[in-house]
Design a protein around this nucleic acid. Structure first.
Lengths: 109, 109
DNA sequence: CGTCACTACTCAGCGTTACTATGTACTGGT
DNA sequence: ACCAGTACATAGTAACGCTGAGTAGTGACG
């Protein structure tokens, strides 16, 4: 969707993925497919996997390796308590930002 | 407000400033002060000036130098037609993103 | 049985953006 | 003479998403 979207996704993509993961463990390919189905058609596979590596390193998710019927084994990610806490902060931050922007859009100033 | 906010501002800060500028020419120091008053207390001056240099270079704003009663001359920025077009795209992009996130927040998934 | 499509993950290098930290310079008050 | 407030500038850094390529396993089709 272009450069604006790319920049705007910084910081939010992580939250989107973590939100998807709440109560819904998933693996990389699945997440990529889901994002595409949500209209994020231009998000590269590499981006998602890099993000997953990062949130794992940051201890926000637990990982379990499971064999797949079609292809290499899957790495299934699920949100842990640290991840939940982080996601809560994410919603707070996003809520703040969204409120200001909504004001700007409607007020015209 | 922390790292999450820093990352989330990428892409949006530009839109915020451009939105503030619509029908409301302003100079750097003024914009910084306004941002602080809006709750963006941790946005550094340098960030704003760098952003202004960028949007000027990208041809989104017109600049006029005006003397100040207190301190060095001001550089007053006003949105031009390219800037308005860019801002419109910004709102489209943001609208798309905000909608998905709102869905994620309320649905829980 | 060779190729192709789909599944599934990895990684090095790049571009953009906001932050840090510092510096310059002008005005007015004590 | 000093300091706070006004006003702008900039070099270097960190973080994130993108590009583009690669590796590997499965099943279908001719």
């Amino acid at each position: 969707m272009g450069k604006q979207m790319t920049e705007m996704l910084k910081g939010t993509l992580e939250g989107i993925v973590l939100a998807f993961l709440t109560g819904n463990p998933a693996y990389g390919y699945e997440i990529t497919t889901w994002l595409r189905s949500q209209g994020f058609t231009e998000i590269a596979e590499g981006t998602v996997y890099a993000l997953l590596v990062r949130i794992e390193k940051n201890g926000l998710v637990d990982v379990e390796k499971r064999p797949s019927e079609k292809g290499p084994p899957r790495k299934v990610y699920s949100l842990n308590t640290d991840g939940e806490k982080y996601l809560e902060e994410f919603w707070t931050t996003w809520g703040f930002l969204a409120e200001r922007l909504e004001n700007l859009r409607t007020e015209g100033k």
